[in-house]
Nucleic acid binder design. Structure first.
Lengths: 137, 137
DNA sequence: GTATGACCTCAAGTCAACTCGAGGTCAAGA
DNA sequence: TCTTGACCTCGAGTTGACTTGAGGTCATAC
């Protein structure tokens, strides 16, 4: 064997930027597979590093752990659907983000004292709901 | 007076998409100003609707209530700084989002069985940290 | 030989942003 | 008259994603 180099939790944490407790937590909730134990201590497969990094990046972008899990762990091919949906959602989100950025830039340049009194902010407050979404409660 | 038309909480909720409890909650934590009471019932200024809508849109895009408050309520002009910072942050976030979308699309098209086994996902797992942020621990 | 650091478990705490439930008031309509 | 609906307060519960704390085990460094 080319020495599979199992990693202690500290290395996984260090090379992913997650905290040791977070890695333990991810193991506990099944986001990563249960590590083998050597003398009671966790030894992780190196691939866990990639997985944890993926989780962190995906979280930054706004995926929940549940969504990440369904993308990462789908064995039946359904992950494609999840990903397609997510692409759509992210595209929409990007659209809103761009709107928000544009609006903030306009507000920055329009000379208002405060956002609350800036007429530009109205554009943003108006409903851009056209696609299906929240049912009115 | 042109009848300032104070609104009951239900109208505010209905025209913003927030729930009645959320509007109460926003008042309680000072996200919106305390409504006057008529017979114990809240009557909101119409401008509250714009404010709550703004809050909701901003939240969708990823602002926390705290950030929204600092943008909306800064009387001293510091909101410009907050907004500038936020524009930068949103630009970065959009960058990551685009990366994520691109990666997911590649994965969608690359024929892998699962994301976990897709080499494309490594690109995403690698650190794209170049600007200031987390110190390598 | 003891102290430090990395690790362990298990339970509980935290934080944001709500949400719910119990118990009550009040006005308008059938 | 009775009931429905909109509103009220206050306190507690929820969810997601961790974080912290108490108390303990080892191995290595000084």
């Amino acid at each position: 064997m080319t020495s599979t180099e199992l990693l202690p939790i500290g290395s996984v944490a260090a090379s992913t930027g997650a905290s040791v407790s977070t890695v333990r937590y991810y193991e506990e909730i099944g986001m990563i597979s249960v590590a083998s134990r050597v003398g009671g201590k966790r030894r992780f497969h190196p691939e866990t590093v990639g997985r944890v990094s993926f989780i962190r990046r995906a979280k930054e972008v706004g995926f929940s752990l549940g969504e990440i899990r369904s993308i990462l762990d789908d064995e039946a091919g359904g992950w494609l659907g999840v990903v397609e949906d997510k692409i759509d959602e992210l595209d929409r989100r990007r659209g809103r983000l761009e709107l928000m950025i544009a609006m903030l830039k306009e507000m920055r340049d329009c000379g208002c004292e405060a956002v609350a009194s800036c007429p530009r902010s109205d554009d943003f407050a108006l409903e851009p709901e056209s696609s299906s979404s929240v049912a009115t409660p």
